[in-house]
Write a protein that binds this DNA or RNA. Structure first.
Lengths: 127, 127
DNA sequence: AAAGTGTATATAATGAATATACACAATATT
DNA sequence: AATATTGTGTATATTCATTATATACACTTT
């Protein structure tokens, strides 16, 4: 499982795991019914405690993304991609608002921001 | 002093204070030499502990935004507006990158994002 | 002296992350 | 079929860092 932890980011480990698994589900790399790595295996791979992977999986289950069965493992559930896009659109919007707040403080113009956005988007898209 | 705390945001109180005072300095509402509210007064206004306002003011002093004199109070320092713009530009960029990450997960197109940005920018600018 | 300012110490409350021992399910071995 | 083994998730108690606090102290101005 391709999960990359960034310890310097300040974002809790369990949250990074949650976001990235949601990401894999949304891009289709993880389909409904697919098994997720076991809590133990993922913990070993990431060199963290099982309790932290459990915390992430618990949250994902609570929010309806996955299903966990004792003794068997955890599995991706089917997701409503309409709803998903709405969710991401909303999250995008919130972050964009914060970015604009900073920009206005620094008298960064709309043109500068638009250009910045294009560059970042193309850059990230090609990765 | 117009500082608004958002307890639900998860952002530490002292950090919210720091950001908003920086904001006031950048927009010119707080000029070099101007007195900031005393730690006690601000604490009283915000209904928080003096130690929390002190923590904010300490950080601001460490980062060169203000100067604090025992028995007298805290005062805004002159700021290098070139450097300031650089700082804000950098912060803007980091937030924009996070926004793009979310957008790509949800298959939000560049065009959608550009439009979103324009709307948010104009909206916030007029406030 | 009084009332304003900032400061220092010890402490409580919360949340992230952990180690370790426990319980359940599938599979291999006999 | 019985059972040992290995793999799965679970629960408890604990450590650690960060945020926020109460309260008593020290300096400056009036």
């Amino acid at each position: 499982m391709d999960i990359i932890l960034n310890n310097a980011s300040g974002v809790p480990i369990y949250e990074q795991i949650e976001e990235q698994i949601k990401g894999l589900m949304m891009t289709g790399e993880l389909k409904a019914g697919d098994a997720l790595p076991s809590m133990r295996l993922l913990a070993k791979e990431l060199k963290i405690s099982v309790i932290t992977t459990k915390r992430a999986y618990e949250d994902l289950e609570r929010d309806g993304y996955i299903e966990t069965i004792v003794g068997k493992g955890s599995f991706a559930k089917a997701m409503n991609s309409e709803l998903m896009k709405e969710t991401m659109l909303f999250a995008t919007q919130e972050l964009m608002e914060k970015a604009v707040d900073k920009a206005l403080m620094g008298k960064v113009s709309l043109e500068e921001m638009l250009e910045m956005l294009e560059i970042i988007y193309e850059e990230k898209k090609s990765n």
